[in-house]
């Protein structure tokens, strides 16, 4: 009788040991996978932030490109063939005089065009008096807050030589500032 009791006790102890072993193993594996999961999550969160920044930058760049090719700015076929990233300076000067009409139209706080080449020592702002011997056209003068992006464009206008007109295109940067969306 005692032998049977001892045998049953030993079997129970062995089973308990087995259960304990399995429980420890399961606990270790769970902790390990939780740690791995946390690492992956942290990495993903970090790359998500990077991706968001890249997307924001790309969107801003697309906005500049869209603006340069919008009817208010684009050269169209005035200077020969249809051109991409080409701004009609004469049109923009006319737009500058009527910028109040376009208040809130683009959702941008600041729009400027800076001539890069041929370059000049100092910036001369364009107005009716200085145009075309100037290098900075301020179309919309707002507060320089939020993000600022710029892209290359060709700035074309009609020039005249002894009374006959010809096309003159220069290299410029279209700069845009806009408020960040929270």
């Amino acid at each position: 009788m005692i032998v049977i009791k001892n045998k049953t006790q030993m079997k129970t102890k062995k089973a308990q040991m087995k259960i304990q072993q399995t429980a420890f193993m399961l606990l270790a594996i769970t902790i390990f996978f939780v740690l791995v999961g946390l690492f992956v999550l942290m990495f993903k969160m970090g790359s998500m932030q990077d991706t968001a920044e890249i997307l924001e930058r790309d969107n801003a760049m697309s906005l500049v490109t869209k603006l340069a090719n919008s009817p208010e700015f684009a050269c169209g076929s005035v200077f020969g063939t249809q051109k991409v990233d080409c701004i009609d300076a004469d049109k923009v000067m006319a737009l500058k005089q009527n910028s109040a009409i376009y208040e809130g139209f683009w959702g941008i706080s600041n729009i400027e065009i800076l001539k890069i080449y041929p370059g000049s020592e100092e910036n001369v702002e364009c107005n009716i008096i200085t145009y075309p011997n100037c290098n900075l056209i301020r179309i919309k003068e707002g507060e320089l807050t939020g993000y600022s992006v710029s892209n290359f464009v060709s700035l074309c206008r009609k020039e005249s030589f002894e009374g006959s007109p010809y096309n003159k295109c220069e290299l410029a940067r279209l700069m845009v500032s806009y408020e960040a969306i929270e």
Partner: peptide, 27 residues
């Protein structure tokens, strides 16, 4: 993703239209 080429392609497009000081004929 960082290697964006938008700025470079706009630059190349823009320089192609640049009017040089080399005249084909008078104007």
């Amino acid at each position: 993703e960082v290697l964006g080429t938008n700025e470079v392609s706009s630059f190349v497009q823009s320089i192609l239209s640049y009017t040089t000081s080399c005249a084909e004929y008078q104007d």
